[in-house]
Design a protein around this nucleic acid. Structure first.
Lengths: 118, 118
DNA sequence: TTAATTAATCGTAATATTGCAATAGACAAA
DNA sequence: TTTGTCTATTGCAATATTACGATTAATTAA
């Protein structure tokens, strides 16, 4: 199918998945790291820095823009992209909450004497 | 192509993407939340709780197992799954480092007087 | 042994993702 | 206006993902 049955899940679960999904490609990770590093960037830079074709970079930028994690400002013929700090902060909250899940009893719940299925 | 050019990126970038990717589906988010909540789970439970078919759940469990975020122990005819806390902790480190990126100057790098490209 | 239970695997259909060449659109410079 | 520069969009090919019915494999119970 290729299509997640999102109606089976809570808004929070779908939101976590949506943010995680956009980080699920190293090019987008790399783009974000670059944007944080230089705090200003145009698309052409990224093509050189990353080594993917211009339409590919543009496509990855669009996915980041759709989640509002970055914003772009037109400057003449080029576009200046930068991190949307407010959105980044709220995304970080959502994901950090998920990553910080913990159990009352952190001991191994499965018997170590049993056969490990893997 | 559908295939990421992972050779263009650092090990760290690929690792971040791999972890994020596995969280990029709400079913896997839900499975992990359930495992944290009850600290012990058999596959059949998940099929009931989540509402996807058994082969689908099994497939999602395999992806989580491949990254060693969970482990399964055979108990009779069923399999007890639980969080691999050591791996969860190291994954959390990797992703938290990424999410905690910050810039020296958190001000908007793009002029607000310019046209917003979106 | 036979039957029942449980989870993994296989096979397949539908859809999504990745990547890029070609093109289009927007702007600046000449 | 024309030309050059930069980014977005379109269209497409290759591959990946999601989901599930059917089956298999492993174990337990009768």
């Amino acid at each position: 199918m290729g299509l997640a049955k999102s109606e089976l899940f809570t808004n929070n679960q779908n939101e976590i998945a949506a943010f995680a999904k956009v980080f699920g490609h190293p090019a987008r990770v790399s783009i974000l790291q670059h944007l944080f590093k230089i705090n200003r960037c145009i698309c052409g830079d990224l093509v050189t820095v990353i080594g993917l074709a211009q339409p590919t970079i543009s496509q990855h930028l669009r996915e980041l823009k759709e989640l509002q994690l970055i914003k772009g400002t037109i400057e003449g013929t080029s576009v200046c992209y930068c991190i949307n700090h407010e959105k980044w902060k709220s995304m970080k909250n959502v994901l950090t909450n998920f990553l910080n899940m913990d159990v009352s009893n952190p001991l191994n719940c499965c018997g170590t004497d049993k056969k490990q299925n893997q």
